[in-house]
Design a protein around this nucleic acid. Sequence first.
DNA 1: GAGTGGTCTAGACCACTGT
DNA 2: CAGTGGTCTAGACCACTCC
Lengths: 261, 261
Amino acid sequence: MAVYERIAEDLRGPIRAGEMKPGDRLPTETALATRYGKSVPTIRQALGLLQAEGLIEKIHGRGNFVRRPRKLVQRSNLRHQWEKDRARQPDDIRARTGATEHDTGLQVDDLLFFAKYQEIRANSDLAAAFGVDEGTPLLERIYRTRYRIEDAPFSLVHSYIVSDLIAGNPDLSDETKEPWPGGTQNQLFTVGIELSRIEERITARPASAEEAEELALPPGTSVILLRKTSFDTTGRPVEISDVTNPGDRTEMLFTTHLERW
Amino acid sequence: MAVYERIAEDLRGPIRAGEMKPGDRLPTETALATRYGKSVPTIRQALGLLQAEGLIEKIHGRGNFVRRPRKLVQRSNLRHQWEKDRARQPDDIRARTGATEHDTGLQVDDLLFFAKYQEIRANSDLAAAFGVDEGTPLLERIYRTRYRIEDAPFSLVHSYIVSDLIAGNPDLSDETKEPWPGGTQNQLFTVGIELSRIEERITARPASAEEAEELALPPGTSVILLRKTSFDTTGRPVEISDVTNPGDRTEMLFTTHLERW
DNA sequence: GAGTGGTCTAGACCACTGT
DNA sequence: CAGTGGTCTAGACCACTCC
């Protein structure tokens, strides 16, 4: 076992055991170098491991700190039915029921930070997902969403709709009409579309440089990637959202009901 | 921008653009050091970034290679209903329908590698999840599952059941009786338990040292953590599984059906 | 200004891979 | 055996934080 691994192992102990509490500062890197009789870069390599594992947080000019456990932002698939129920309600009802969202355990109670709409052409990936030809005009809506909780994680959303589908309501392509009460399902309702099924695909990987930048994440942390595909009553995909979330402070909850015997 | 970041940026280009194809070898580290007029450790820092982002793979003694896109192992929540349908079938039917699993898109067609059973006491986390007192006896079943696909990713499963619940069938606590056809839902059926709801919670974080070891992952890659809680018809949690999967080669698929207007 | 982590160097030696 | 990446050193200098 390499020296830096052995040192990392040695430092993990007290943290895992709770002898060092969240927020506690570790000894300085030079102090650790002296203690272990190794060079500073070696110590830094060990600390880098602990950072990648999410055990510590390095803060420039201040020190290395035991990381606080993350506050979770929960996202449940029950929200889809709830959104659907609300989609046909008049505006004032939808505005009023907005408050209940938080109370009912649907804790995606966020404030919209930035929305940008643009017309794009389907690349091969999106064309396949929608079952249309490459180059088909799509409306792309980009949301940067900021959660109230804690010190500002972000969520990045790229949403796509085939432009032809929503030609009946020009308001839907107008980014100055944001935020919409009732969400996407209500917007689709205004052009006569009802959803019957939603598929969500989840993968995870380390944040890319751009994502780490945009989400203000330490490099090397994980992001959860969610691709949500909404199908109408004929089984046709009508909307696709790609959502990027910070991995360790996001919890996705999926409830599956089983038929009774 | 730091030198190593600039170099990383410079190397990302040809990879993203597809000028360097998966499997291609990058120039040696000393060659890159000469090209950029920087020291080898600096080059290594840049390459470390690209590795963390999943763009390249470092292979000791051979070189740095553009990473092949991962083959996905898919896991769908449709499997729960399918497992339930099969749970009451006789053994021979369950053995026969095993083959259809793969054909129906439920691609968790794995071979069991290792199973270990042991009696443990509920810690505070599990006690809260089951709604029982701390210290309550639980049966813990640990599975290390190996997928056929590609060069061996693993899946780690820790499954928990309150011991009292399955006292009626001693076979269930016997690890030599593995693998069971029909899975957990069939086993619960033998002690008169029917499931009506399954909740799955998903988070992601960088793999810990132990996980990276056990899953044979490069350090710093992401794992998807799934906690599956199964509820019986009275709404009581009867089984909990903690599943650890390699993040970027696992795709979780969740389908939500919506009530019609 | 003192203390801390962040970056970078130049080079030594080890461990692994393929011939 | 030659070539490659993996580990480690000792120290310089920079950038950030806090007093």
